[in-house]
């Protein structure tokens, strides 16, 4: 029996919230470094964002215990993990499975196709989403690998393992 099974719904919600906040604290240092590195290495992203470089985006990887809040302001870029029960304001929201979002960032998947299949949801300011998509799509190389590289060999190993797991899952889904 799972240890949380004995909790009432209110208690379970409190535990989930605490877990989410802890996860946010753990990943935050990495996220801050990721957004600074991408901004430093790919300044053309900001030009394609236009006025939306001052906007906030809420990115929601549905299976993770937190959402991500991105402010791609070149003067003060911010990328934060935020608990779902207290997300800050954002002009635009992007929602999908974590690896799908990662593949979209890396242009391994097509955003329009993911939208057509309903694997990807967007809401809020559509122009902001379109600008972000086009800005990231013009980046050469893999943003995911750059991010994983910040953690060195362990980061790259984790990314490779995630990709293998996602690929296996996707292939299993297609065969089912």
């Amino acid at each position: 029996m799972h240890w949380r099974a004995g909790l009432d719904p209110k208690g379970a919600k409190i535990v989930r919230g605490a877990g989410s906040r802890l996860s946010c604290v753990l990943v935050q240092p990495l996220l801050s470094r990721v957004v600074r590195r991408i901004g430093d290495r790919h300044p053309s992203v900001f030009a394609r964002l236009g006025i939306y470089k001052k906007s906030a985006f809420l990115i929601d990887p549905v299976e993770l215990p937190f959402a991500l809040h991105l402010c791609p302001d070149p003067e003060a870029p911010a990328f934060r993990a935020v608990p779902r029960d207290s997300t800050p304001h954002a002009q635009a929201m992007i929602r999908g499975r974590f690896m799908l979002l990662l593949e979209l960032v890396d242009s391994q998947r097509d955003g329009d196709a993911a939208f057509f299949s309903r694997d990807l949801e967007v809401s809020g300011d559509t122009e902001a989403v379109v600008r972000l998509r086009n800005a990231l799509d013009d980046v050469e190389g893999s943003i995911a690998e750059e991010a994983a590289g910040i953690l060195g060999a362990p980061g790259r190993a984790i990314l490779a393992r995630l990709r293998r797991a996602y690929k296996s899952e996707a292939e299993g889904f297609q065969q089912a």
Partner: peptide, 10 residues
């Protein structure tokens, strides 16, 4: 032209 590199590649 509005599609991604992934679409173009494929």
């Amino acid at each position: 032209r509005q599609r991604s590199k992934s679409y173009v590649r494929s």
